[in-house]
Structure formats: structure tokens, C-alpha cells
Simulated assay, not measured.
Amino acid sequence: MKYSNIGGQAVMEGIMMKNGDHYAVAVRKPDKEIEVKVEECHSFIKNKKILQLPFIRGVFNFVDSLVLGMKSLMFSAEFFMDDEEEEKEREKEEKQRKKGKDPEKENSILLGFTVAFSIVLAVGVFMILPYFISLLFQKLTDSQLLISIAEGVVRILIFVGYILLISRMKDIQRTFMYHGAEHKCINCIEHGMELNVENVRKSSREHKRCGTSFLLIVMIVSIIFFLFIRVHSPILRVVVRLLLIPVIAGVSYEFIRLAGISENKIVGLLSKPGLAMQHLTTKEPTDDMIEVAIAAVEAVYDWKKFLRENFGKEFPEDKES
């Protein structure tokens, strides 16, 4: 199988697809038309050499993905505001302009705070909370090894439980369907098939480069790290867990990156848990969702060129020229 450099994520009633320095958000509007926005995306780290350093790049890529995801989600949400909400938003922006403020700058600051809060909340729930819950096991055993294993198990259970809980929400179920459409589009191209609804429908919704797999690998890598890195002070244990988060994210990113381009059997075996988790976070999409995903891909990616170069495919326009 050949590998493309395109990736994406689901948003509200749509798909975001990223290729290089550009991304596209395609949204199925309430009037059933597909709206597509294409823009450049820039990392908050301007030094490109840093973004190419193994292990370090994973941390910055994760933050960039969060920022891009939030921007894409905000864009898609605009189409589903009612008239009263839209009017309030316009009035708010007008008041900001009258005060000499830039609404876009204000939104960028708000976006930054939102991303920062999301990171802090995720660290607290998935990294620190399991540690404090694991302390309850000290009443049952003095073995730090068993307590560390219990912490890891609690961490994974919280993660899986969170996914199961939100998957019961109707809006999230539709988002998971769009998530499936995103994966199926990428798999369609990477398996040498023309990008159309029929081919996408029969493609797999599992993909090794998925963010779900990344998050599960983060959980597993954290278990391994905390098994071998031990300190006696409870306060230092919390500090060590916080300090190791960038390292864990960096290692996890490198594994996902390797898994996305490798046919190695061992790597494939290690990828199985993440692929299994994707059965929770992806669902089979409808044809109109697939059409949205195709629109997002075609806005930023020349899939025909990819098929020509990697699979020797020919298209009618090739014969005409």
C-alpha cells in the first residue's frame, strides 16, 4: 500500500482535511449545500527545523492539531447558529469595532485560551486523576509495581469510558460517522482506487495514523514510563508525570508516524489496539457524508496525481492531452 501525506478530522456536520501548509473544511449546511473553505495553516513554532526533529515534533504537531481542529470546529458551528445567536454575534463584533478592537484578534486570543484549557483539562483527567485513584490501592498492597499497573489500567478505563459516554450523544454519533468518512476517503486513495462515493463506501474506516490510536498509544506509553521511573515523594510523582507528558507525546507520535508508513508485522501488531478503538470513534457514514469528505479532500489534495505516480492510473483527461 502507498501512503499519502493527507490527514484530517471530523467537525460539526463536516470534515477538515490537511495537506502540507493548506487545509480545507467542508460542511454540509442546513440547506444541504456543501460549503468549502480553504486556507493556509501555520504552526505556532516558526522554526521549521524544530518541527522536523524526532520526538520533539510530536509535541508541536499535537498542539497545532488542536488549534486547527478548534478553528475548523468554530467555522462549521457558524452554519448551525439560529438567527438570534447570529444577531448577538454580529452585535458583539460591532461593539468591539466601535471600541477600536479587532474581533479576529479577540477570537484568536479566545482560541488560545480554549486550547490551553483543553490541554490542562485533558492532563488533569487522563494523567493526574488516575494517579490519585491508584493511591487507593495502597490499602491493598505495598508493591509500587502493582500500584503503577493499577494506575495505567485506571487511565485506560477512564479513556474508554469517556469515549463510550460521549458516543451516546446524537451529535457525537454523527461526528463519528464523518470521522469514518474521513478515514474511508484516505484509505480509498491509498489503496489505489478512484475517489468516488462507491469506492469510498467499500473502503475501511480503520487507519493507523488516526488521532484515536495516538491517544491510546499515549496511555500505553505512559504505563511503560511510569513502571520504570519511580520516586518516593508523592509531590515529586505528580511533578514527574507532568514533566514526562511532552516526552510521552513525542514517543507516541513517532510510533504513530512509523505505523502509518510501515508494513512491519510487529508494528502492525502493536497498532491493533488503536485500530480496535477506532470502532468506537468511527461509524459507517451515509453517502451524503462521503460527498462532504470527498469535497474536503479534493480542495487540498490532487488524488489523481497520487494515483498516476504510485499506481500508474490513467484518466480520460490524460488521453486527451
Rank of each mutant, 00 (worst) to 15 (best):
M1E: 10
Y3K: 14
S4W: 07
N5H: 11
N5W: 10
I6V: 14
Q9Y: 12
V11Y: 13
M12L: 15
G14I: 02
M16L: 14
K18A: 09
N19C: 12
N19D: 10
H22Q: 10
A24T: 05
V25D: 14
P30M: 01
P30V: 05
D31W: 06
K32R: 14
E35Y: 12
E35Q: 13
V36I: 02
E39A: 11
H42F: 06
I45N: 05
N47M: 01
I56F: 11
F60V: 14
S65G: 15
K71Y: 05
S72N: 04
S72D: 03
L73I: 04
F75M: 04
F75N: 06
S76A: 15
A77M: 12
F80W: 13
M81N: 14
M81K: 15
D82E: 07
E84P: 02
E86H: 12
K88W: 03
E91C: 02
K95F: 00
Q96E: 15
K98T: 12
P103E: 10
P103G: 08
E106S: 13
L110C: 04
L111F: 02
F113W: 14
F113M: 14
I119Y: 07
G124C: 04
Y131V: 06
F132K: 15
S134W: 04
L135G: 07
F137S: 07
F137V: 12
Q138N: 14
K139C: 02
L140S: 13
L146K: 00
A150G: 12
E151W: 00
R155Y: 01
I156S: 05
I156H: 06
F159N: 10
F159T: 07
L165W: 14
S167W: 00
M169P: 00
I172R: 01
T175K: 10
F176R: 08
F176W: 04
F176S: 03
M177A: 15
M177Q: 15
Y178N: 11
Y178H: 10
K184R: 13
K184H: 03
G192W: 04
G192V: 03
M193A: 03
E198W: 09
N199V: 06
S203D: 00
E206G: 02
R209W: 01
T212K: 03
V218F: 04
M219Q: 13
I220P: 01
I224Q: 13
F226W: 08
S233M: 06
P234S: 09
I235D: 00
I235L: 08
V238F: 05
P246H: 13
V247K: 02
Y253T: 13
I256G: 06
A259Y: 08
G260T: 03
I261L: 01
S262Q: 08
N264A: 09
G268P: 02
L270W: 03
L270M: 13
K272H: 08
G274F: 01
G274Q: 04
L275D: 13
H279A: 10
L280Y: 09
T282F: 04
K283A: 12
P285C: 04
P285V: 00
D287P: 02
D288F: 05
D288C: 11
M289L: 01
M289H: 05
V292N: 08
A295W: 07
A299G: 10
W303K: 08
K304E: 15
K305A: 12
L307A: 12
R308H: 03
E309Q: 02
N310I: 00
G312F: 07
G312P: 03
F315D: 11
D318M: 06
D318R: 12
K319E: 10
K319Q: 09
